[in-house]
């Protein structure tokens, strides 16, 4: 089935997945389908911790509710302000710490369901998240 990208000029999920940056793949329900080795090394999470778990697990608590509602709104409206451009967001690490990473998220639709892929690049300590 041919995928429909969220934006034609943006890289595909597959392209993101091929990069050496930390990568996470999420299904339409917001459950983690896959993470790469770079992700595990960068944030301490292992596949057994995250696979089939809500993506909100790698988000700080204060962002989780907003993530669920925003994720749901995209499902309902297919309109998002966070896709296909770099975002500096906080990410929760396996050890409970929080760091700022550059997220680049793309969405592709397969049939009735969306698939989300994102690369996360940890930023130096002290970097402020996006305004």
């Amino acid at each position: 089935m041919e995928a429909t990208s969220s934006a034609d000029s943006t890289p595909s999920i597959e392209e993101l997945q091929r990069s050496d940056r930390p990568f996470v793949l999420v299904d339409h329900a917001g459950l983690v389908l896959a993470i790469n080795q770079a992700f595990q090394e960068a944030y301490g999470w292992e596949e057994k911790d995250l696979l089939d778990q809500p993506l909100s697990m790698i988000l700080p608590e204060a962002f989780q509710m907003s993530h669920h509602l925003g994720f749901s709104r995209f499902q309902a409206t297919e309109f998002s302000t966070i896709l296909a451009h770099p975002l500096r967001l906080k990410t929760a690490c396996r050890d409970g710490s929080v760091c700022v990473s550059e997220h680049y998220i793309v969405a592709e639709k397969y049939g009735d369901n969306w698939l989300f892929g994102a690369t996360l690049t940890p930023l130096p300590e002290g970097t402020q998240p996006d305004a």
């Binding site: 989780q64 509710m65 709104r73 995209f74």
Partner: peptide, 29 residues
Amino acid sequence: RQVLGRMEAALAMIRDSLVITTADGHILW
């Protein structure tokens, strides 16, 4: 998620401000 998404989209359109915070006042949404 469909239902929540519609609700969130609807709440985005109203003129009044809505905020959900933690018990001590940190913004969740």
